[in-house]
Design a protein around this nucleic acid. Structure first.
Lengths: 227, 227
DNA sequence: TTTTATTTTTAGCCAAGGCTAAAATAACGC
DNA sequence: GCGTTATTTTAGCCTTGGCTAAAAATAAAA
C-alpha cells in the first residue's frame, strides 16, 4: 500500500500551521474548535482565522459552519498528523544527534516541520531508528497518521504513595523544562508521591534520593505512567 | 571573536534567494550582475528583479544604479555565503547520513538552507565533522563566509596524457549526475586523458580500467585537480 | 423575554512578492 | 550620428495572509 501522505497538492506554511493548531485543539477537547481558540493558540486575530478556515473549508480540509467553529476532515487530519510527525522526528534528531537540550528544539522544529519531501522523512525516521516518542514524551504519528494512544495520567491525578514514571510534559515552554531539569526530572524519571495537600493540590514527591515540594501547577503539567 | 553571521535582522526567503543568486552570478563573471541574468537564473521576470534589488539596495545589501546592474555589499556577500554554507552542509548531511544520492539532494537543500538558527548550523557542522566540500565537490564557506579557493580546472582544459582527480561538477542537474554515475565517475575518481580532438573538443578518457569517449559538453562541466 | 455581553464575521486596508504592458534608457549597426 | 534592437524600469494589477473597525449572530443575564 502506498504512503497515505503522497498528496498531489502541497500546502502553504500558513495552511499547515492552521491544520496543526486545529488538530491539537481537537485533541484537547473534542468537538468543533472555536475561532477564538484557534486565534489564541496561534497568536493571531479571530478575523484572520475566519478568513483562513473558510479557505480550508473550500479545499475540503475542514468542515465549517458560520458561527459554529471548525473540525478537520479526514484529509485535513492526515495532513496535520504528518506535520506533527515531521516536527517530532526533527526534535528527536536535534536532541539525539545534535545534542540539543529538550528545551531548545521547539522553535527549530517549527521550521523544519514544513520541509517538503516524503523521502526525506522516510529516511530521517529510519536514521533515527523509527522512534515512537519525541524528546518531550509525545507520541510520533506513524506514516499513516496514526497516533499511538498511551496510558498516561497527569501527576496531579495520582494518589499518595503511588509511583509513576515520567512519560511526557503537557506544557513544553523553556521555563517549565528548565525547572524540570533543575529538579532532575526528565523522560523516564521515577517519581513517588509522598504527600498530597487537598487544599491547593501541592505535593511532596521523591525523585531519586531527593524529596521536595511541588505546586499543583507543576503536577498538572507532567505526564506519568503509574507503576 | 563573535560569529560574523550573528545578524540582528532576519531576511525573507525571497531576499535570501536573490542574494544567493547574485553571489553565484558574481562568481561566474566578475563585476555588476545584470537584471536579466538574475531573472534568468531565478526563473522569474526582469521587472520582479528590479523591484527586489531596489529593496535590497535600500537595506544596503547590494549596490545598485539604475540600468547598471547590482553588486553585493560586504554585508550582502556574507549573508549569501552563509546561505550557501547552510545549503552545502545540509547536502553533506543528506548524502552522508541519510544515504541520498548526490543527484537527489539539491531540491531538499534549497528548502533546508533557509532554516534560521545559527546554533543548528554550528552543531550540524560539528556533527558532520566540519566538511570542506559538499557532495558535488563545491567548497563550503566557513562560518565567516570565506570560501576556500581550490586549484581546480575543467577537464576540457587539461592536455592529452595528463591525469586529474575529479573534484567537482560545474553543472549539477540530475541528468548530468546520472550520466556520471553510469560512467562510474564521482568525486575522487582518477581520470586520464588518452586523446583529445581539436575539432570538437571531444576526448577519449580512462576511468578505472574502462576507456571511453566523452563530448566537449561533458568535459567542460567536470572539475579536476591535475596530478 | 428582553437586554447585555461575547463571539464571530464582514468590509476594507496593508505589505510582500509576483505578474503584464508600456515607457525609458542603453547598445549596436551602418 | 541616427535609427533599430535589446535591456531595464515604471505603472498598475493580482494573490496570500495579515490587520482594524464595525456589523451580525449567539450566548448569558436580568
Amino acid at each position: 500500500m502506498k504512503n497515505v501522505f503522497t498528496f498531489v497538492h502541497m500546502f502553504t506554511l500558513a495552511e499547515e500551521n492552521y491544520m496543526k493548531a486545529i488538530f491539537h485543539l481537537e485533541h484537547e477537547s473534542a468537538g468543533e474548535v472555536s475561532t477564538n481558540a484557534i486565534a489564541e493558540s496561534m497568536a493571531t486575530k479571530p478575523s484572520s482565522v475566519t478568513d483562513m478556515i473558510q479557505k480550508l473549508a473550500e479545499k475540503k480540509l475542514v468542515v465549517y459552519k458560520r458561527y459554529k467553529g471548525a473540525k478537520l476532515t479526514e484529509k485535513g487530519k492526515k495532513i496535520a498528523a504528518n506535520v506533527i510527525r515531521k516536527h517530532r522526528l526533527w526534535e528527536v534528531f536535534l536532541v539525539e544527534k545534535l545534542n540539543f537540550h529538550w528545551d531548545e528544539v521547539h522553535e527549530i522544529a517549527e521550521q523544519l516541520e514544513h520541509i517538503q519531501s516524503e523521502e526525506l522523512i522516510t529516511r530521517l525516521d529510519k536514521f533515527l531508528g523509527s522512534p515512537d516518542f519525541d524528546p518531550h514524551g509525545d507520541p510520533i504519528p506513524d506514516k499513516h497518521g496514526v497516533l499511538k494512544r498511551t496510558e498516561k495520567k497527569l501527576l496531579s491525578e495520582i494518589e499518595k504513595n503511588q509511583k509513576g514514571v515520567c512519560v511526557g510534559v503537557r506544557e513544553s515552554s523553556a521555563d517549565f523544562l528548565q525547572y524540570l531539569d533543575k529538579k532532575k526530572i526528565s523522560i523516564g524519571t521515577k517519581i513517588t508521591v509522598l504527600g498530597k495537600e487537598f487544599f491547593d493540590g501541592s505535593m511532596i514527591i521523591q525523585v531519586g534520593n531527593q524529596q521536595f515540594f511541588i505546586s499543583h501547577k507543576i503536577a498538572e503539567n507532567l505526564y506519568v505512567q503509574t507503576l
